[in-house]
Design a protein around this nucleic acid. Structure first.
Lengths: 135, 135
DNA sequence: GGGTAATTGTTAACATGGTAACTTGTGCCC
DNA sequence: GGGCACAAGTTACCATGTTAACAATTACCC
């Protein structure tokens, strides 16, 4: 993350906020719980982040009609514009890492870490939004 | 760390405090800078941790005679006793992980991560006190 | 030597993770 | 349908990582 943080900082988002925005970009809408799993953020952290992103109007929360405990979260137009503006830089930083390390080595590492996670029982894998390529 | 934290918590230390105490157990005395490298802690964090550990009298700080900017840090008798009391539990937790994952796989992972660190230029490797066996 | 740059530690401000307590809602079961 | 366990989020508290600013020394260099 040392490679990404400076870019993100310049744009006024933290790496976790960025992770949340990226995760939201690939779905129409979700709930906080699903988003926590997707971004691998703890519920308390995500709660704070969503509050801040909503305050900045990068995301929209709409009360669920079927379950009043949760709400639907989606990217706002401004949020999508922000993503389109910042994503290229993020991709460039990722490319630089891939060039230093080598694509095969990175793929191998992902495999090993997934395996490790399984053996230690850290929870269901699923699709993650960490330093992995958007594909 | 999920496996270690509960044990450590019961004994009233955080994982980073534990890392510092373990690192101190293998040297006669050091400076804060060297300790930061050894434990992979940031200078500000280490500064706070040393303050707390000194307050609890688990470590001793003695002003350096040759360089008045830094001081010598060493384990107190109480600190050593604490380590002897808690270390066995820590070792047991590590053994459990090693059994789940397999020693060969863990060794291989360490190698891969060291390699990665080198390629990304994260700094000099050196001996670390993370989840690695005391040997 | 004297002044400036680099080093060593510390403190402050902010964001986050972990844990636990708490509030609301839902669902279920007798 | 009343009560109770469970689920979804939020809040609070503490410890840490980052970054930046700062204090005090030390080293270097003309």
């Amino acid at each position: 993350m040392e490679r990404f943080r400076p870019h993100l900082r310049r744009h006024g988002v933290t790496e976790q906020q960025w992770r949340v925005l990226r995760a939201l970009s690939s779905v129409d809408r979700t709930t906080a719980g699903a988003l926590a799993g997707l971004t691998v953020l703890s519920a308390p952290s995500l709660s704070r982040i969503l509050r801040d992103l909503a305050r900045r109007k990068l995301i929209i929360r709409k009360d669920s009609q079927t379950d009043q405990r949760s709400s639907w979260i989606s990217l706002s137009a401004a949020g999508r514009a922000f993503l389109d503006r910042v994503a290229p830089e993020s991709e460039a930083a990722y490319d630089a890492i891939e060039r230093s390390v080598g694509r095969e080595r990175l793929t191998a590492l992902h495999g090993i870490l997934d395996d490790l996670e399984g053996r230690l029982g850290a929870g269901a894998p699923g699709f993650r939004y960490i330093a992995r390529r958007r594909s």
